[in-house]
Computed example of a mutant assay.
Amino acid sequence: MSTLQIDHTSRWFGTLVAVNDVTMDIGPGITGLLGPNGAGKSTLINMMAGFLAPSTGTVSLDGQRIWRNEGIYREIGLVPEQEAMYDFLTGGEFVRANAELHGLADARGAAARALETVEMTQAADRKISTYSKGMRQRVKMASALVHDPSVLLLDEPFNGMDPRQRMHLMELLRRMGEQGRTVLFSSHILEEVEQLASHIEVIVAGRHAASGDFRQIRRLMTDRPHHYAIHSSDDRALASALIADPSTNAVEFDTAEGVLKVQATDFDRFTTLLPRLAREHGIRLLKVSPSDESLESVFSYLVAA
């Protein structure tokens, strides 16, 4: 069983700080690295994989520094987000080449097993240029698994996959986690992490924002104030009814937009209260939309929490 250790690690590119003083341990099982686009997830994963050197701090595997450590590289498999591949090769040739780079005695056999694991055997003789995005993801996965690593790093692995492919990959990752491998995957989609990861690390603007199991992180997100924009047949009457309830702590009528802006502190209570109050007061709800439900707003709240 292997553990990745990130210790006060930063990485900058010129004046751009991509990762800023991050400390975390990633142990056996499935960990989700959650954060909005541009948060620094890919930079952090590339340092874990040994493709980037930290500007400061250390990234280690079981106490051994990863950067320029060939022995450690053999324990790590990486599925990068980038689409760049050798399109003139077949899928089988691509995976076999990676097996040969790792010096495997039976490169052909290892490649065949890895392709079978990701259900790409039938397409192994086709050129990568003919693959869909989901097929490219799967052949990258086979390439990462071909040397049977103890650590698997996946950067946005579900991009471009259809529902069946996603389910298959999720089952595969679950099995690997149950086998005691250290599996980390990044995502900016909360639902992906919810379905798969037992532990979550949250990165925002290069900083480590939160850490814990999914329920702990979800509770932080659910307990934050929720903002809604509401159009109704009688905004004034609805505002009076809502402000009288403890689930709502602010109501404002925006004359410029012609919308009622509501801040709710009790999400569960508010979502059942709103339709009931509208029915009791004879008010028609024309449109109810969250005004702060982007992941960026959620993560910003986590940073401030």
Results as ranks from 00 to 15, higher is better:
residue 275 P to G: 13
residue 288 V to F: 05
residue 29 G to W: 03
residue 260 L to S: 11
residue 200 I to V: 15
residue 114 A to P: 01
residue 4 L to M: 14
residue 2 S to M: 06
residue 183 V to E: 03
residue 60 S to R: 14
residue 302 L to P: 01
residue 94 F to G: 04
residue 259 V to A: 14
residue 245 D to G: 09
residue 261 K to E: 07
residue 74 R to P: 00
residue 140 K to I: 04
residue 171 E to M: 12
residue 265 T to K: 07
residue 236 R to V: 12
residue 221 M to T: 10
residue 278 A to D: 00
residue 272 T to P: 01
residue 61 L to Q: 05
residue 277 L to V: 11
residue 150 S to A: 14
residue 51 F to D: 02
residue 304 A to K: 11
residue 303 V to F: 10
residue 134 G to E: 01
residue 225 P to W: 09
residue 198 S to E: 03
residue 169 L to D: 09
residue 141 M to A: 13
residue 198 S to R: 15
residue 145 L to M: 05
residue 58 T to G: 07
residue 70 E to G: 15
residue 11 R to I: 07
residue 300 S to W: 02
residue 104 L to N: 14
residue 73 Y to S: 11
residue 78 L to E: 03
residue 255 T to G: 09
residue 193 V to P: 03
residue 174 R to Q: 12
residue 4 L to H: 06
residue 240 S to Q: 05
residue 57 G to R: 04
residue 41 K to G: 12
residue 7 D to M: 07
residue 293 E to L: 08
residue 149 P to G: 12
residue 208 H to E: 01
residue 198 S to V: 02
residue 256 A to L: 11
residue 82 Q to S: 15
residue 170 M to K: 15
residue 59 V to W: 04
residue 31 T to V: 13
residue 17 V to S: 09
residue 146 V to P: 00
residue 19 V to G: 07
residue 160 G to D: 00
residue 265 T to G: 06
residue 36 P to V: 15
residue 12 W to G: 14
residue 283 I to M: 09
residue 87 D to I: 13
residue 87 D to P: 00
residue 241 A to N: 03
residue 244 A to F: 04
residue 248 T to L: 04
residue 271 T to D: 07
residue 179 Q to P: 00
residue 187 S to N: 03
residue 304 A to I: 09
residue 42 S to G: 12
residue 235 D to P: 02
residue 243 I to K: 05
residue 11 R to C: 11
residue 155 D to Y: 09
residue 72 I to G: 05
residue 282 G to D: 01
residue 219 R to S: 11
residue 81 E to I: 11
residue 88 F to A: 15
residue 118 V to A: 05
residue 211 S to N: 05
residue 140 K to T: 06
residue 25 D to W: 08
residue 193 V to H: 05
residue 199 H to L: 05
residue 159 N to T: 14
residue 154 L to A: 14
residue 76 I to L: 08
residue 201 E to C: 13
residue 296 E to G: 14
residue 151 V to W: 02
residue 188 H to A: 10
residue 188 H to K: 09
residue 113 R to M: 07
residue 198 S to L: 00
residue 109 G to F: 12
residue 66 I to Q: 03
residue 262 V to T: 11
residue 231 H to A: 14
residue 187 S to E: 03
residue 176 M to R: 11
residue 77 G to W: 02
residue 73 Y to I: 07
